[in-house]
């Protein structure tokens, strides 16, 4: 990956993380969590697993950890785990339809939200948020490919 592409993607991920935190301010009352950043990473990794590798996932994860002031390594671990899973099941996922891919990544998001919830909201962990995040991720991922194509059409990712 070129340096310019790395910088470009870093800025995009920071902006998406900012967007998520702003949207979550309003959605948290309805037990919904926005995970556009995570879904965008899943989309990019599935689209180009050679360039979006585990090192890139770890790098973006650490940046987001610093940006969100959560435990250092939380997002990095979950991002690398997701990239690992996508890589290991790449050829299986390639055979899936768009709907099946959306459902799979929504399940990944459920795990992501659940694991994050256990660590950052130990005393107020709510299953309802985890449950609803499946549906919110499902609907969000319907727009993520269009967003991804729009954002990275100038790069060769």
């Amino acid at each position: 990956m070129k340096l310019s592409e790395l910088v470009f993607l870093t800025v995009i991920f920071i902006l998406l993380s900012f967007f998520d935190s702003q949207v979550n301010l309003f959605l948290i009352d309805f037990f919904i969590v926005s995970n556009t950043t995570y879904l965008f990473l899943c989309y990019l990794c599935f689209r180009n697993p050679q360039k979006i590798n585990s090192l890139f996932g770890a790098y973006i994860g650490f940046i987001i950890d610093l940006h969100q002031n959560t435990f250092f390594g939380l997002n990095a671990t979950l991002f690398t785990l997701s990239i690992l899973l996508i890589n290991y099941n790449y050829f299986r996922l390639r055979m899936f339809s768009t709907l099946q891919i959306t459902a799979t990544f929504s399940f990944f998001t459920v795990f992501f939200v659940g694991f994050k919830g256990i660590l950052v909201s130990t005393m107020n962990f709510q299953y309802l948020i985890v449950f609803i995040s499946f549906f919110s991720a499902f609907f969000t991922y319907l727009f993520v490919p269009s967003l991804g194509k729009f954002l990275i059409k100038k790069t060769k990712l």
Binding site: A58, F72, G73, T77, T80
Partner: peptide, 11 residues
């Protein structure tokens, strides 16, 4: 990478 990241998270 996954092992290193999870070790950092644990620490």
């Amino acid at each position: 990478t996954f092992v290193i990241c999870s070790s950092i998270l644990f620490v």
